[in-house]
Design a protein around this nucleic acid. Structure first.
Lengths: 358, 358
DNA sequence: TCCTTTTGTGCACATATGTGCAAATGAATT
DNA sequence: AATTCATTTGCACATATGTGCACAAAAGGA
């Protein structure tokens, strides 16, 4: 009775083409098995995956059937998982889901995914778990032909690293908001996040090469009339899914936006003045989930909340303690349709009353 | 780095309710973990499944987190799979599928699933593999609210035994054709097949309590006007999916229909006369896939091919050597939209020219 | 209340699986 | 042709996993 490997082997990058090999101790391959398949290695991987996951054969017997060693089968299966050939999903829907999830879904009218977390886990571990879990959820939401808006930040970074491959066609990944700032030159990592999404879904990537905030609102207006920018904004219009986390002013570990030199001290103070509790893609909102009347938003580059709400599916990935007020605001503003969050935060969300704004 | 168990443990029936237990060596449970979930065992199973399949944790660490022994985690995961909480699917779609599949799909314009089979496999093993594979394919086709027509026969029997649980709502399983005959009293096994489908999909089952063939066509006409029969026929009208195999006159192991006392010698001879190559749900067809002009069909109880073709999705499960001519006929007649078959048959199907009928 | 039956648990052992390492292969280059 | 380089393979060993078994805890009956 077989088991089922899972780990993503820390093997080499391995982007290269597949090439046929012949073992000396074994009769030459190529005549074996079904003729006329694709690259031999991928063909074997599919075959192995079918026999292992569908037929419950042991790796040993699969090895015999493919005329390779057992360890090769192990590696084939490992590859099959990494490349998304095998897809494992957990059906937590309906009456099977724990009461916590059901209560949250009922209370807020959205789809909720609670990531199990042990109380003793460090914040970094929680983030990683949430990201991994969210990656699987994302796989069920992304489909061919879809345009997916993607924000950036530490949570999105973790998510991008946890993505599992799911090849699609004609999918388009579009950056939600600019990422450049006066302090750091590169901020290549925003683009790296995008690239990883693109690789995972074999999708084209549309970057948004503008700063996170303009210094002058008038400059933004001017830029927004530029053809190159209008094109990206046009792509954003077609989004079927937006993926983002929330920035929170009160977070123990302050969000990317509140470090990194994006905001001046004066600006931070102004945010507090207006009762801002958090942001989505560098657009700030108050406790009621409104982005209006906040000066800096006129210089921000993320979609207005009004525009965001037009996206049919809006997945928020949230990890950790300090973002509760931001989450309440975002929920009040109807910004979220699908939520992934850790168990601790979920519990607090259920119990804690929405903080009175300001 | 964890592995992933697969086998359906041969444990006791276990239909009973879940009950909380307390171990002496362990502090009482119930205070642990998220409060307010469903039955503790199912709650743990979900949690374990998420940690194991999504987070790639080892069973050992999950055991620690759930405060149970590692073996319990193993059993929880085993249960999670059996009950369909965990769903494993293989994405063989698009350009990743082997050329054999692509060629068949192109040639016949249908969706094809080829079950890998070693050349040295016995017929019974091939049947089992095909059935197991088909069960997974079926899971992707059956959805809530759907009416599924199900035939009977040895292949359907094997399929029913290989089904994996996938709970749905408002699904309806309806028997495609009568199964009683003058020889065997029970033929309980036709109903057992149906029951298994019902159990796997938590669906209501609609039986069709008529003989496989009437002695007199006029009796059928009369019965077809009966309210009870009309109700079943009405349900059949709503089918979104039909699942069947093919009977073949030439099969090495003759199909159920050609043994079992369903047909007299004279009837068998008449079938050959008319160039019959096989049947679907006891409705016979010739090499071109037509059921017309075949006397016995006026006494049969399965849906006419015209009626069958109205079902949007028609899954044919086929295993073994001798059914090639029947398959060619069924394909010519456009009876099939989705096909599951073993590799050997698939190869012959691709190469062999359609047998000239009669 | 006592007894029987059912169900779940941990233990220990037999299998099954993942992976570092060295050897072997095939392709590309000199 | 010889050489280099990047992959791939099989081996062997360390882990990880499945399961028979005996026992403990609940549930049901008398």
């Amino acid at each position: 009775m077989p088991n089922m490997p899972l780990n993503t082997a820390p093997t080499s990058p391995g982007t290269g083409a597949f090439v046929q090999h012949v073992t000396s101790s074994t009769p030459p391959r190529g005549t074996r098995g079904t003729p006329g398949h694709g690259q031999p290695r991928e063909r074997d991987a599919l075959r192995a995956a079918q026999l292992y996951y569908l037929q419950d054969l042991t790796m040993e017997s699969i090895a015999k059937e493919l005329a390779v060693s057992r360890s090769t089968v192990s590696r084939l299966l490992s590859m099959a998982r990494r490349t998304g050939l095998v897809n494992i999903e957990i059906n937590a829907g309906g009456d099977r889901s724990p009461m916590l999830v059901r209560e949250l879904e009922h209370k807020f009218g959205i789809k909720v995914h609670v990531v199990p977390t042990d109380g003793a886990l460090a914040d970094a571990e929680i983030l990683e778990r949430v990201a991994t879990h969210a990656a699987h959820v994302l796989n069920t939401l992304v489909s061919s032909g879809m345009t997916v808006g993607v924000a950036w930040g530490s949570t999105m970074q973790a998510l991008s690293l946890a993505l599992t491959r799911k090849p699609t066609h004609d999918t388009l990944i579009v950056q939600l908001n600019g990422a450049a700032n006066p302090q750091t030159t590169g901020l290549t990592y925003a683009s790296e996040i995008l690239q990883r999404f693109g690789a995972a879904y074999t999708a084209r990537v549309e970057q948004f090469p503008v700063p996170a905030f303009f210094d002058q609102a008038s400059t933004r207006e001017a830029m927004w009339r530029e053809g190159s920018v209008r094109r990206v904004l046009g792509v954003q219009q077609g989004m079927g899914l937006a993926v983002f986390s929330l920035g929170a002013t009160e977070a123990a570990v302050p969000s990317q936006v509140y470090r990194g030199g994006y905001l001046s001290a004066a600006e931070s103070a102004a945010l507090h003045e207006h009762g801002v509790v958090g942001d989505v893609a560098t657009v700030f909102f108050d406790g009621s989930g409104s982005d209006e009347g906040i000066e800096i938003n006129s210089r921000a580059t993320g979609p207005t909340l009004r525009a965001l709400r037009k996206v049919p599916r809006r997945l928020c990935v949230l990890s950790g303690a300090g973002k509760l007020r931001a989450l309440h605001g975002a929920l009040a503003g109807g910004l979220i349709t699908d939520l992934v969050l850790d168990e601790g935060t979920a519990l607090r969300l259920l119990n804690a009353p929405p903080s009175s704004s300001h």
